[in-house]
Design a protein around this nucleic acid. Structure first.
Ligand SMILES: [Mn+2]
Ligand SMILES: [Mn+2]
Ligand SMILES: [Zn+2]
Ligand SMILES: [Zn+2]
Lengths: 137, 137
DNA sequence: CCAAAAATGATAATCATTATCATATACTTT
DNA sequence: AAAGTATATGATAATGATTATCATTTTTGG
């Protein structure tokens, strides 16, 4: 049922060639090298593809939204200190939540799952030299 | 080991009284009613608390970051069309990933998990009247 | 009390994303 | 096929949440 405009097709094709999630601006640069396209159109296409359940997104700590094809069900552990992301071997929800599921009356297209914490180097380096008492519960 | 400045304590206290995740700006308004505090300080405190593993965050489709105390391990299904969020009864990772876990050398403080798709009303109303062919795989 | 380090508040700056709007393209009807 | 209508597109301006600056205050340790 889901149909695509030329721009949407171009964006989806480009996304499917990316091994890692990519930002709208980076996608724009990539596609523009091959064909005439506007940045706003890239954003519009990504939004439309999202609502068709063909593209998913996640937001980095820097506030940048990254997109990838839904087939690529990958997740990350992200360090709150240095911002580095480390991919998980496998989706912890594998099996539990398959694509295009129904939960009650809600149709699920995709999910985002991300772990946050500190990577080894940062947990060591981390100063933690506050001058105040710990807040009580 | 984690110590708090007065601002951090105020922010954490305010957060723990909230039943739902809240934005930095809304928190700022709430706290300012009781004590002198700056918006930048609220952002700084939230960031510090995040790195202490006491506060977690998620980003709405509108691009707003919402914060909540880590104790409140709640997740949502969000409609890509109308933006409404519906809370899950229970965390699908309950048991699998307990708080402050270790995964290899990485220390996990919290996780974000969110399902995206279409809510009942939107999946019905949804026009889907494109004029182009579906993009191939 | 005194210097050094850290925290704070007010405000300006940033920058990814959205809104506008004029134009182009596709579909529908004569 | 031309005209008329709806949708898509591109260039650019506007938005707004978050961050950077910087002067001032507070805390710490001697
Ligand atoms: Mn997954
Ligand atoms: Mn959970
Ligand atoms: Zn790190
Ligand atoms: Zn909806």
């Amino acid at each position: 049922m889901a149909h695509c405009t030329p721009a949407q097709t171009a964006v989806l094709k480009a996304l499917q060639q990316q091994p890692e999630p990519i930002s709208a601006q980076a996608l724009y640069t990539l596609i523009k090298a091959h064909q005439r396209i506007g940045l706003a159109t890239v954003y519009r296409a990504l939004d439309a593809l999202k609502r068709m359940g063909r593209v998913q997104h996640r937001v980095t700590l820097a506030g940048e939204t990254l997109y990838n094809a839904v087939e690529q069900d990958r997740h990350y552990m992200t360090c709150l200190d240095c911002g580095q992301s480390f991919p998980l071997d496998t989706c912890p929800l594998k099996g539990l939540a398959s694509a295009h599921q129904h939960a009650g009356s809600f149709t699920i297209y995709y999910h985002t799952l991300e772990f946050f914490g500190l990577c080894e180097p940062c947990s060591v380096t981390h100063p933690h030299h506050n001058r105040y008492e710990a807040a009580q519960n």
